[in-house]
Structures are given as C-alpha cells and as structure tokens.
Design a protein around this nucleic acid. Structure first.
Lengths: 221, 221, 221, 221
DNA sequence: ATGTAAACGAGACGGTACGTCCAGTCTTGAA
DNA sequence: TTCAAGACTGGACGTACCGTCTCGTTTACAT
C-alpha cells in the first residue's frame, strides 16, 4: 500500500469543511463512514482553544484532548495546525461575521466597517490573528485563509462598491482592489499591531477618512 | 545563584541594541567585557536565518549555530525569540528603510509609500512578517515592535502630515492616527495576507486613493 | 453488544487452526458462512510476513494487507498477535518438521536432532524465535506454544527415549524431562542467542556429547 | 551542523556502561560534562521497570518517567530500547550473578549450574528473557547481549572446562563450545519456554545428566 | 604578577509537542 | 452472520527545540 495522498478532501487548501454535495446516491464507499460528531467536536475544540489559550497554547494535542479525539483523527482530515485553525474558524467563528445590506453603499460600507472593527477587536480577532500568524510559517495556512475566507469576502465587498459606483455614489475611476485594501487593510493592521484601539469608534473614523477619497463629490467640510 | 535578574539591558522591551552611552568611566565592572563581535554575529545571523528560512526555520539553535555562538550567549542578552528577531531587524534591516524629505507633503507621502511598499514586498517584509507573527504568541515581542519601531516611525510620518496641514495641502480636520492607519495599514495587510502583489505600482495607487480623501480640494475628476 | 465472548474457537490457547470437523449437517447456523479461503490466506500471510520481515514487521495490519483481509476478520478468529503467529506457524511451518522413526533409539535421536537443528537454523527458526519472543510479553502466546507445540513434541520424543531404555540402549535411571531439556534446549538456545552456528554439523556434535551421558555403556574413547 | 553520528559511546553494541578508563588527563572535551547521576538513575529505572512490568511495560517513556529524566537523555546515550535494557541489566543485575571457584571442576560446574538455574528462574531471568526477546526484533540488541554478556561468560566457563580436562576429570576430546551449549542451553530454554520449573533441583539433575557424558569415567551406576 | 569576576563556546539536561505507526474497537454496505 | 474497508480512540515512538544548567577557557579589571 503506497498511494500517499489517500484522498484528503481539498488537499490544496485543507479546508474541506463543506461536504461537497455527496455525489448523488450510488458511489457510497465501503468502510465505516466519517464520524461527523467527532469532526464537529474537533472544530469546536479548535476554536475554543484558540480563543482561550491563543496561538501559543494551540497545539494539536490540546485540541485532541479537549475534543476527546485521537491525534490521528485530526491528522487524517487536516494536514496541519494552520488548516485546523482555519477550519475551526470557518465553522465556528466566521458565521458570526455577516454582511449587511442596507440602502446606500456609503452607509452600507460604514456600517460594515464598524461591525468588522468591533468583531475583529474581540475574541474572533484573536483567532484570526493566530491564523495569520501561523500562515507566516506555513504557506498552506495563509493560502487557505486567502482562498477560503479573504477572497470570498472581498468579492462580497466588491459588489457593494460596484453598486455604489452604479448609483453614482462613488467615483467611477476607483481601483476596486486598492479600495478594498484601503478600507479593510487598516483593520487587520490594528488587529495584528496594537498601535491603538480597534473598536467601532475608530472604525467609523476610518470609514469617514477613506470613503471621503472614494466619494463622487467629497465634502470639503 | 544570588541576584536573579542579572542586569539584562532594557528588560522591558528586550531591545538593547543601542549600547546606551556607557555611563562615563567609573562603574566599569570587573570581569571579561562583552564581546561586541559576538553580538554582531548573532544579530546578523538572526536576520539571515529569518530571511532565508523564514519563521519556521528561525530557531535559537539555528541562529547560534550560524553565528558560531553558544545558546547561552543569546539568552544572556535577549529574553526571547521575538526579542532576538526584533533586535536583528533593527540593527540589520531597519536602517535600510529610510525616510524621504522632499518638498510637498503629498509628494513626500506618495514617495514614502512607494518606497515602503517596495521594501516590505521583499526580504525585509519577510523579516517583519515573522516578527509580527511571533508577536501574536508573545506579547513582549509585539510590544517591542510597537514601541521600538512602529511608534517612532508613525511619529515621523505624523510630522509630514502636520506639515501638509500647515501648508494647506491637507484638510485640517483629519485625525492623524486614523490617517496613518489608512496610509500604512494596507501595506502591512498585503505583507501579511497575500491577496495581491505588494509593489511600487500598487503602493502608488494606494497613495492616490487614500490621499484623495485627505487633500484639501480633492479632484472630482 | 450482547455476548462479549462471541464464541472464539479455543479462546484459552487461541490455536483453533483445526476446523474441528464442522459438526455434520444440522447445526448449520444462519448468515454468511465462514470463508475458509480467507483463513488460509491470513495464515499464509502471517507466516510469510514473519519469515520475510521478522518480528519487527509482523503487525496485524501488515498481515491483513498481504492477505487482502480486514483486520476485523483476524481479530474475530485470533485473540492476539502471538496467537496469530502460532496459528500461522502450526499450519504452514510445523508440518515440515516431521519425526523420523528409524531402528535404534540412538540413531533415531541423532537423526532427529540433526534435522531439527537444520530446520530451526533456517526460516522456520525465525518464525519460531518470533513466537517465543512474543511469548515473553504475552503469556497467552507462550502458553499456546507450550501446549500446542512444545509438549506434544516432547511427548513424541519421550516415546523414543522410553523405547531406548526398554531396548537397553539408554540408562534406565535417566530423568526423561531433564534428558529432553538437555537434548533440545541447546538448539533453542542457539536459535535465540547466536553464540555460534546452528546447523547439522553442530547438532550432530551436540547429539554425540549429550547422548554419551545417557547411553548404557558410554565409550571412554 | 550535519555530522550524524555524534560520538555515541561504542555505537556498535550500545553498551557503553564502562567509562573506558578516561584517556589519561588531557582531552577533556568542552561543554557540560555527562551527568553520572542521571545515567545511574536511568539504568536503575530500566532494570526496575523490566523486572516489574516485563517487556510489555518497558517503554522508553516509562523508564524516563521513573528515572526523572528526559527521553532525549536516554536517546543521547543508548541507541535503542534493547541497548538500554542491556545496559540496565549489565549494571544492575549482572553483577549479582558471580562465578564460583571451588576445587574440582565437576563440583564447580554443578554448583555454577545450580546457581545460574536459581537466579535465572527469578526476577533476573525475566529481565534476561526480555532482552533476548527484544533481540529477536532488533539485531543490535542480540549482538550486544552476545558480545557483552554471553561470550565473556562462556569464556569464563570454558576455563573451568579446560581445567577439568587438564586435571583428568573431563574427557580430553570434548568440543568445548558444544559442551557449553549442552550445559547452559537448557537453562535458557526453560527460562524462555516454560515446559517445566527452573530451579536448583532441576539444575542439579541437568548437571548430573550432562556432565555424565563429559566425565572421563562415567559411572554406570 | 596575580587573583577574581564576568562572558564565552560547547553541550548535557528535563521537558513539550511534533507527526507517525499500530493496536484494538466499531460501523457500514455487500455477499 | 461474515467479510473488506476503513474511521475511531489511544499509547508509544523517535525527533526537534526549548530554556536552563554546568563545564573549562578567555579576557580584563583590581589588587
């Protein structure tokens, strides 16, 4: 028996938390089926350990112990610590960070920035920071984060920007990618580098300053 | 073992790379003097290991081996891995990242952002990323980074912003701290989270978008 | 889970390699019938793995893989690694080690020792060594070996000794058990502790030296 | 730093328990010196664990825990479980098994066999069995046992046999190696394969039966 | 000139966590 | 009811570094 890569789900990113539709009926493979209970316990444990102990205490052994699982089970489904952290974050924490969909694009963005600032300034931010930190030593982790979390959310935000341009709220010549960096980059920055508080108040000010450069007729105050 | 804390230089931050003037003559204590050669070799080795192997390969043992030093010597002068990385960065890498001082504040800031974007996109960025990552698990490290690097540089940048306001180039009602976050946050973001390239071209676009919101009479184009 | 001990054949020794006649027709139980093919494949695989990889490579998983069987099937029929090794040995290797039945007891014993020495010095010896080694950590295994292999063979050899005494070839006052130890012990010793070769030549010398003490009128040379 | 074999003492056998005379004075190597206390604690723990728990419970982790040592320290000095067991046996148990030196060779051998039978039938025998068992899966272990224990003792016994021949007590044409196998093989056999008791009484009977074949003028009784 | 005290290299030490291998158990779907 | 497949908990493996601790040597001040 030599085939090394034994069908790990989504080996590239190690995300695998979406059961990818369970191909119709027929090809149900032999052998004991994957125990969803164990998976959930592991993901929950991962999130909890990360929130409580931080990156330093986030060891595979700690997660396994808390989940009442064997280390083997973890390694069977997630290729690395980072992948596990990501999966835990995506299944436990990420759902709490939803998008708003108010009326005006400007109001939308302001509201969204305020929310994100508030959430990232709390426990979720600590989980996120840990993942990004781990990503600096393990490329797979940062890739998983970018592809599995960052990019989808940027796509979402991009829609709001486009809507704003269409309605004439925002300048039509803005570079969307750059605009996204300008809006969200500072939040990550404050989350990772505590040069000052990361809260709703600050986020609102940030929104005001940056959006001012993106608006069609910026107020000269 | 008598006095536990045996006079580690600047224990709070673990920076200690500036020999702090060696108070006059008198208190020169007995015993062998600190070997500056060894210190330099260690700092250089730290930087090199960080650049070459990344965070994953940055172990005290690796640095000691490359520097031809004993682990003891490292622990004698730096309290932790993060502190060592910081010191290495400050003595080897940071000096390369200088400030410009052109004429107009806008030109100044644009030029500066372009330079920083370019430098942080390279090997120096990898060192910096590693430090920030390490800082997520060791509070002393991130503190050392904020106090020893980030804040001084923010102060420097703040001067340029103030000069811009005085000269009427920038709006007088901007929140300086928020403006700094808006300008530099995105660079750190792209450095740590590769959602896209981090180079001069992107940095210039960023400068344009953000400064547009800070200018006195923004072009409506 | 109802009845724990689910009718494992001969649980005490775990031997079970003789299918014990399958009681005629009537009590033919419901459900899929036991697959004799699988059993044979497992035993053969056990023997082969033991011969080729030695004790170190003799894992239940390796045997299952080579036999194309599930681990469950092995555990259903044999209680432990040692029992499996024993069963494999008894069904594959032991049959090759037959008894001679020449004329004179002395010639008989000499011939027999030479054969045993030769066989135990080869691949079969490696299997046997592994079983005895495993027996040191698992009492059930050594018991199975003693009861299922050693004692029956000793009984066989004892008959030859008794015949020798009756015919006046051997001294009548010898302790049969001790005599058996003296004759066969050294072979096991050399098999397990390589202080020297284990071959026919050595076995013949051994026979000469030991039988000399058991003969009625030992030659003074 | 790549040199793999970092000067493990007597890597071939892994014995290393004799400090090999500490080459005169000069070449005392740099670095902290080996902690004899730790070594002794480890060897003692190894012996104890082996006696109490048997081979099954003899894990490196158990020994380390009992000795209050780190696993690293064990691996630094002994290449394998078997080597550790051997070293423990040689330093703790073996010294208790001394040689007699009475007058007649026959009396000497009888006495010696009785002693060895008695000792190997007890706790020491269990240690020894475990080592030989481990030796079946790890060639280095059995080699260490043969070279470090078995052969030296055989050499000792050989001297007694030779003395017996010189004094005319034993037949001059006996093959010494074979005679040793005949005398001691059965003891190892009974130690490893419990076909019957291993005690002084049995050992005496064994001595009588085997020596009868080696004596110059064997009694016909 | 001779202590004496600190700094240095080397490297052994008790530990923690790693990622892997098997053991032995349990579950599923097919035969 | 048995079988192959294979997921599960769990324990030990051997390795890599951690941060601490001697060692024996080197250096330079203080006597």
């Amino acid at each position: 028996m030599t085939s090394a890569a034994k069908r790990k789900p989504s080996a590239a990113t190690g995300l695998q938390h979406v059961p990818q539709a369970r191909a119709a009926k027929p090809t149900r493979r032999a052998g004991r089926q994957r125990d969803e209970t164990a998976q959930r316990a592991i993901l929950r444990a991962a999130s909890e350990v990360l929130e409580e102990k931080g990156m330093a205490g986030f060891t595979i052994e700690a997660v396994a112990a808390r989940a009442g699982a064997g280390k083997t089970t973890i390694y069977r489904w997630w290729p690395s610590k980072g992948a596990l952290a990501m999966a835990g974050f995506l299944s436990e924490t990420a759902p709490k960070i939803s998008y708003a969909n108010g009326r005006s694009a400007l109001a939308n963005l302001t509201h969204q920035l305020r929310r994100v600032g508030s959430v990232y300034g709390g426990a979720s931010g600590r989980v996120l920071s840990a993942i990004i930190a781990e990503g600096q030593r393990d490329p797979a982790t940062i890739t998983a984060f970018v592809e599995g979390y960052a990019k989808p959310r940027r796509a979402e935000a991009k829609k709001i920007l486009l809507a704003g341009i269409e309605r004439g709220e925002l300048r039509p010549d803005i570079d969307l990618e750059v605009a996204l960096d300008a809006l969200y980059g500072p939040i990550y920055y404050r989350m990772l580098v505590p040069v000052g508080p990361l809260d709703e108040h600050w986020a609102e000010a940030l929104a005001a300053h940056v959006l001012n450069g993106l608006k069609k007729q910026p107020t000269a105050t």
